[in-house]
């Protein structure tokens, strides 16, 4: 464990807490893509299959439970909670996210480190996470002004994998036994690049203290 990895996990944790805070306190999920939340729940379900079979550290297990619990409770809020679900704008959240799942699954079957069920599912989760933010980014383009909490949520979610990239670079040079993980590295890089223009507009809006507005 290095500081970059810890910073990445804490940033990721902050993103789900910001989202839960938004939904739980103001009882609204306006501007949040349910499709992205569904994809993330699938990512965690596929990635953490080994949560009870392969104990790595207490930290890892606790964090996996937090990410699984938070992503499924966000789904519950957005689909079942009588007040929150009314603020979900399904007419705007139209990205056909099913078209992301199958290609990622096929790619995981073709390109993986080991052709076992758990490894293919883990690889599937890596590919899917790289594109899971797309419905949310499309929704942000549509909803003209983005509220602060939603902007912070997307920013933190994008930043966490960026910190993981620094963690991989650090481990590559610092840990002689650290082997190459091209699948994780390339997917993580693509994932972070998807946020590039969002980061640009978000940082500008924070710097100039103006509402975040993505160009149409």
């Amino acid at each position: 464990m290095n500081i970059f990895r810890l910073a990445g996990d804490m940033t990721h944790l902050m993103s789900v807490l910001v989202l839960l805070l938004k939904i739980h306190t103001i009882k609204s999920c306006a501007g949040i893509s349910l499709k992205t939340q569904e994809l993330y729940a699938l990512v965690f379900a596929a990635r953490y299959l080994d949560i009870f079979t392969h104990y790595y550290s207490l930290y890892n297990t606790v964090m996996k439970l937090i990410f699984l619990g938070s992503s499924f409770s966000i789904l519950w809020y957005m689909k079942r909670h009588k007040v929150v679900r009314r603020s979900y704008d399904k007419d705007q959240d139209t990205f056909r996210h099913h078209f992301l799942v199958l290609p990622c699954l096929v790619l995981a079957l073709l390109i993986n480190e080991k052709f076992t069920f758990k490894e293919v599912m883990w690889t599937f989760s890596i590919y899917l996470e790289a594109v899971a933010i797309l419905p949310q980014l499309v929704l942000l383009q549509r909803t003209r002004n983005v509220d602060n909490l939603t902007g912070q949520y997307v920013f933190l979610l994008g930043a966490y994998r960026g910190l993981y990239i620094i963690n991989w670079i650090y481990r590559y040079f610092a840990e002689p036994t650290y082997s190459t993980h091209w699948i994780t590295w390339i997917s993580g890089l693509l994932q972070t690049l998807l946020y590039a223009d969002f980061f640009y507009y978000y940082i500008n809006s924070v710097k100039n203290n103006v509402r975040l507005q993505l160009p149409a």
Partner: peptide, 10 residues
């Protein structure tokens, strides 16, 4: 069996 590729990250 060959050691499962242990994914030690989240």
């Amino acid at each position: 069996a060959e050691e499962e590729a242990d994914h030690d990250e989240l």
